[in-house]
């Protein structure tokens, strides 16, 4: 089963608020880094927003005297947006009209590889991180993803990831 199955042939774009994202993903505070997703083409691509506030728990230690969002958490936010994009495709496949019924969270896999990533700007409290993810062709349970994050019109980070899908039979999606 492909994680990137095209299921919305008419090119319809979907939006997800924080409550709907919690229905799609298993992530919760303090490790949920997508506040909203928009222009999501299920299984294909989408945008996400992460509003960064001074109250983020990671700023307590990163760093005590200077608040900087860790680059790996930016990558995590990108990976979570990716999960929204493919989990929304599963939801469309199985029960398009059912608001809460499908368990997509249990199928969300893991980060398989950070294939390439470049960071070009610090992310600090007050920044609105705009994320973008575009899925490539899946190969088995693995999907390559092109990702990018920006604040305003400034590029924050850009690169490509590999994500896995957990099969319904369990396991971690790797072989």
């Amino acid at each position: 089963m492909s994680a990137a199955a095209p299921v919305v042939p008419d090119g319809r774009k979907l939006s997800f608020d924080a409550n709907q994202i919690r229905q799609l993903l298993p992530h919760r505070w303090p490790m949920l880094f997508v506040d909203r997703a928009y222009d999501v083409i299920p299984g294909k691509s989408g945008y996400g927003i992460k509003n960064v506030t001074v109250s983020e728990p990671f700023f307590a230690g990163h760093y005590p005297d200077q608040s900087i969002m860790p680059g790996v958490l930016i990558v995590e936010a990108m990976a979570q947006l990716t999960a929204v994009v493919y989990a929304s495709a599963w939801k469309e496949e199985t029960a398009p009209d059912d608001e809460a019924g499908v368990d997509t969270a249990g199928r969300v896999g893991y980060l398989g590889a950070i294939r390439q990533m470049k960071f070009s700007r610090l992310v600090v409290p007050g920044d609105q991180l705009v994320l973008r993810a575009e899925l490539g062709n899946a190969f088995g349970t693995l999907t390559p993803v092109t990702v990018q994050a920006s604040v305003g019109n400034e590029l924050v980070a850009k690169g490509s990831l590999t994500v896995t899908e957990r099969g319904s039979g369990g396991g971690n999606g790797l072989q």
């Binding site: 398989g112 590889a113 062709n137 190969f139 088995g140 693995l142 390559p144 590999t162 790797l174 072989q175």
Partner: peptide
Amino acid sequence: LDSLDTLEIVV
């Protein structure tokens, strides 16, 4: 090589 390398080769 492993399965992640397989995807790398595909791309």
